[in-house]
Design a protein around this nucleic acid. Structure first.
Lengths: 342, 342
DNA sequence: TTGTACGCGTTATCAT
DNA sequence: ATGATAACGCGTACAA
């Protein structure tokens, strides 16, 4: 077993001092050609690579960034993660991922775990529970320690930090307007039961669009669903009892399931009823009919977040402490597919 | 800004030595109650937490594990990752994720980056390119350095290490047998064009099932598709020209797209033609009709992999160097849904 | 009961 | 041109 070699080993073997080896490997001018060649040859032979941990300790920089997301088996978060990883990797950073599982406690524990030197900064989307509790002390502690933090998607304004978001309100408004312009008048909204910032904003946008067009908002057309709802006792009834000709859904799963139910009720899509969802994932692309959806461009969000974070990490701390926090709004795109193709 | 506090700060402040502080915080018997209380109070007040990096350097243990996957925006890998993260976290480990993007070079670079002290062990699924090139020197180097490695799903037998896999051959065989037992005789196979171990094994299983039942394998029923194929010039033609009554697909995207094409040709599912896919993801659950699929239980695979890795990391190295490498086969489950419901 | 010294691996500064 | 020393933060064997 070829154990990892260190400067010390090389020094001992070549009978020079550790610092000589260190300098030789960096091609320092102070070292003679002879020794440099000797050392470098030896190092190459034994495949010497500096120990990351030692360098981290010395530099107080880990070149790691911590990412905490509520869920990883989730197209949107995965997409954002890909953007983060791609950018970070290109900049020589590694990414440590923790999953909060929508739990406040896990979020706190993970943050504390990573905050003790493991990472140079955080990128995160808040757990549902955190948003519900409105308790952000763990975030505050971290930022007060001077650790850069970038929030994305599930954010809060209670903490001074960078943010990367989409304009959920505008996106929902645009989507709703599109339905209206397509001649739809009785537009339902299927949203989540649990409180999420984003759902709330999407609902705002939905309401705003209706009001703008002088269409009264009918509260009975707004359906708040738990994540794992049973088809029968909810939408089934809903579809039979209510009359509507379009549905805006805050995610694609709701949309696809709703389309299925509508079809089972004998409704034709998009002739009788049209659908728009959020999150342009696999379901939207491969459902039958394919689903018109608001693309959030997660990868772009991830890249933006990583860029903001790494910029902050690498900027000298003393830089005129003019800590300005920025919010980047990534534009959404309405991707039109069959579910609204009139 | 409350900077992170160290033992040194506490020692200076309380006018004791660093080691006294260190011991006091561990409630050592050698330290007087007085000092202990004083130190602990101070530490709590300033929220002292030991620096992970320093501890890693000292212990030569990082409590990090490295995960390298070909793709993260992918249901199966995500699911495995969740299992890894869950188990690792429970054991106090963090997970560093790198994406090889199916590229050999990126896989090598990421491995080397992490192997220099950043992690205690690797869990990975090989990139397509690595499998194609059959070049595993990067894996060999790492294992020769004594870094534990667990391969999952996309594995190789060229490297002595632990493995977590499903029995792809058996799963495909069972699925095919199920189709045969349902009275299907002209069963097609839709598989990937790029060489992957798993696809090859699934094809084996498919062939074996047919042979077992005395059904001749018709090569023209085996379709090898690129990942991003165009509907028109491939399956479209295929569906018109060929006659078959069932399709086994090596992933769920192929299955869902194929179902759609079949429906467009006027075929009824499952009456005229039935489908089985691999990977029990969202598409299988929410497609219309819902898709019968081979569940790979990724989360369980992830947990198993993490357990094997951490066991190895934590076992003393000198333990009778009886390095036995184990292969865990996670049983698959055929989840029957509408696409085969006769 | 407390403190000193050393080591983990590296680099930077300051001798020689 | 080379080497000794200190420092990053921590833990521990040993000395006082």
């Amino acid at each position: 077993m070829k154990r990892k070699i260190t400067l010390k080993h090389i020094a001992r073997e070549l009978d020079v001092s550790i610092s000589t080896v260190s300098k030789a490997l960096k091609n320092s001018e102070e070292i003679s050609r002879d020794t440099k060649e000797k050392v470098q040859a030896f190092a190459r032979l034994y495949n010497y690579k500096p120990n990351n941990i030692a360098i981290s300790l010395k530099n107080k920089r880990t070149k790691n960034i911590g990412v905490i997301v509520p869920d990883i088996v989730h197209h949107f978060f995965t997409t954002v993660f890909r953007g983060i990883e791609k950018y970070a990797n290109a900049k020589g950073y590694n990414v440590i991922v923790c999953v909060s599982d929508e739990s406040f406690d896990k979020e706190v524990i993970n943050m504390e775990m990573l905050a003790n030197g493991s990472i140079d900064g955080f990128i995160m989307a808040l757990s549902a529970e955190t948003q519900r509790k409105n308790d952000f002390n763990h975030l505050r502690e971290v930022t007060e320690q001077g650790i850069p933090l970038v929030l994305f998607d599930r954010v809060t304004d209670e903490i001074r930090c960078d943010q990367v978001i989409i304009d959920d309100r505008a996106a929902a408004r645009d989507a709703t307007l599109r339905l209206i312009d397509n001649g739809r008048r009785r537009i339902a909204l299927f949203t989540t039961e649990t409180y999420l910032n984003v759902s709330a904003k999407r609902e705002d946008g939905y309401r705003q669009a209706l009001e703008e067009r002088g269409i009264p908002v009918r509260e009975e057309l707004i359906l708040r669903l738990p994540y794992q709802y049973e088809e029968e006792n909810l939408s089934g009834v809903f579809f039979r009892d209510q009359e509507f000709d379009a549905v805006l859904c805050v995610n694609e799963i709701f949309a696809v399931r709703a389309m299925r139910l509508a079809q089972q009720q004998g409704l034709r899509i998009p002739e009788d009823i049209s659908f728009i969802g959020f999150t342009d994932g696999l379901l939207s692309r491969y459902s039958a009919p394919t689903l018109t959806t608001v693309a959030q461009h997660g990868e772009q969000m991830g890249e933006a977040a990583a860029k903001m974070l790494i910029d902050k990490v690498e900027q000298e701390y003393d830089e005129t402490d003019a800590r300005s926090y920025r919010t980047r709004v990534i534009p959404t795109t309405l991707i039109e597919r069959e579910s609204t193709a009139l």
